[in-house]
Simulated scan of single mutants.
Amino acid sequence: LREFWRAMLAELLGSLVFVSAVLGASVPGPGEASTGPLYPALAAGMVAVALGHCFGEISGAQVNPAVTLSLLATRRLDLVRALVYVGAQCLGASLGAGALYFALPLKTTADCFVSKVPLEVNAAQALGMELLSTFQLVFTVFSVEDHRRREYTEPGNLAIGFSLSAGVLIGGRFSGGSMNPARSLGPAIITGFWENHWVYWIGPVLGAVLAGVSHEFFFAPSASRQKLVACLTCKDIEMVEATSVSRSSLSTVTQTAMRAKQVNKQEQN
């Protein structure tokens, strides 16, 4: 139970730090023009790497309801924990946005960190950009986690940071490149701006779930039809994964033995 609440607090604090860092990079200084998506992209990527090191072993440093819901959809997370995490992420994002708002020298600059659809883009186009940006981010997250489960030494936090920065650069001029419903919710609560807010929930959540499902059941080394059926029928996925891994290992051993026999025959001849 202690570990559960510790993980919840990690998600709350992580979301607070993440949102305040990204929003702080989005706000221009007094007399400055808008800097575009470059500064928020760099801030998002760097703070994601830092949070991965700080809270990765505690809660996974998800700090994003879309990521959490994708883990729930692929049954990597149970329902109660997922709901608590989403609540903590939204609360942390609101506290982060509120702290930054009260720290701003000019309150009017708060409009710069609100997620909104530009006038040149319609809501459907912004939805598509959020879906695409979040898809590539969450697919990277699942790939990194899969490598970690197999004890690879790849610097996974760095890959996630790069993917997050790329997502902000992809969607920054068309939808704001939020990819995170909590990051959009916090400023909306503080400023009261709710126009097209649904875009920043449906787009990221749909993109995240599609990425998680496609990786787990089509691209992961343990992907199989049996695993997909187990997920849809609420059976034990880990047991199916263990069976598929043992089969693949057995197949590898068999192939190696057959090659050794062929080599021995050739040497005898």
Rank of each mutant, 00 (worst) to 15 (best):
L71T: 00
Q125R: 10
S94I: 04
A126D: 00
V144G: 06
R76G: 15
F139Q: 07
A73I: 03
E120N: 09
N64W: 10
C90K: 08
F113R: 02
S70I: 01
P118T: 00
V63M: 14
A110K: 00
G52I: 03
V121C: 01
E57T: 09
H147C: 10
C54N: 03
V114L: 08
G87V: 04
C112L: 03
R148P: 12
L71M: 12
T74H: 10
A82S: 13
L72G: 06
E57N: 10
V144F: 07
V80F: 13
L83H: 02
C90S: 09
N122W: 06
G60M: 06
V121P: 03
L100C: 05
T68W: 09
V49F: 12
E57H: 14
Y85H: 10
H53I: 02
G60D: 04
G60Y: 05
F142K: 01
A97D: 04
G87Q: 06
V63Q: 09
T140D: 03
N122A: 03
T134C: 11
L106V: 02
L83C: 14
R81E: 07
Q125K: 06
L119D: 11
L69C: 07
V114I: 11
G96D: 00
Q125T: 01
V80L: 12
A99E: 01
V138K: 04
A93Q: 05
Q136W: 11
C112H: 15
N64D: 09
A93T: 04
